[in-house]
Amino acid sequence: MFAELLQYMLSGLTIGAIYALAGLGFSIIYNASHVINFAQGEFIMIGGMASATLTASGVPLPLAILIGCGGAMLVGVLVAKFAVERARNASTVTLIIITIGASIFLRGVAELVWGKDFKRLDAFSGETPIQLMGASMQPQSLWVVGCAAVLIVAIGLFFNRTLTGKAMLATSHNRLAAQLVGIDVKRVVLASFALSAALGAIGGAVVAPITFSYTEMGIMLGLKGFTAAVLGGLGHGPGAVAGGLIVGVAEALGAGYLSSAYKDAVAFVIILAVLLFMPNGLFGKRGTERV
């Protein structure tokens, strides 16, 4: 009984950690630019594909992840510069469509560069399962959860301790005021895309040994990341992390105790229920509309 529950929790936390990273990516960009970046999943894909294909051609793993990460950041900055920034004054929906266009474009390019087949990336530290009170987990799960935790803490420190981070935070609170005190808002937007892309790419690399990498791997992960960000309250970093873990665990429990076919529905039912009582997510601040 307990072993079963533990097994589900372990699976849930692993995948939840990736949702959390994706959700955090959504939140960072949202804070800086009020854009919902539907290409967030593609950053994950770039990280996963780059690390899998580069290691296959002999590049050492850490370097491969670094290259993937750099590539994703570059792509993120380009998307921000040439698509999002130019359409700054467009409506929310228009911006969403632009990022959707970007995600289709990136998938197309990835298909051309890497091909359509699934890529395998060896687990970072072997595949001997770790036994834990009757449940078992892949060592890679520890990598996923560990990396996510480190990144989340690092992001927290970055926003609260560094000048750049504080500038980005200030921009999210009040764009105009930030501009007035001399913060280069445009650069903040670019930085936010780069940061989110890096988060996504590292997430993609650590999760690749579990999920395999392929050009469409980002679609579902991105969608769940958005779900996580909204559940936690858009723009609320820790909220996105909590949201990701909740969605991951709910899915795993749903698959275990209810029905595996309805496991995706479980996550969305939870969100609808939460939004019904908390229209701004679990931790979101109540917005006031300016007339």
Binding site: F82, A83, R86, A87, N89, A90, S91, T94, I97, I98, I100, G101, A102, S103, I104, F105, L106, R107, G108, V109, E111, L112
Partner: peptide, 20 residues
């Protein structure tokens, strides 16, 4: 052919950027 997705994505982006 193999460039379908790229072209579709580019058209979507370009249209929305230049004709918001």
């Amino acid at each position: 052919q193999d460039y379908q997705q790229i072209v579709l994505g580019a058209i979507l982006m370009a249209t929305m950027v230049f004709m918001p």
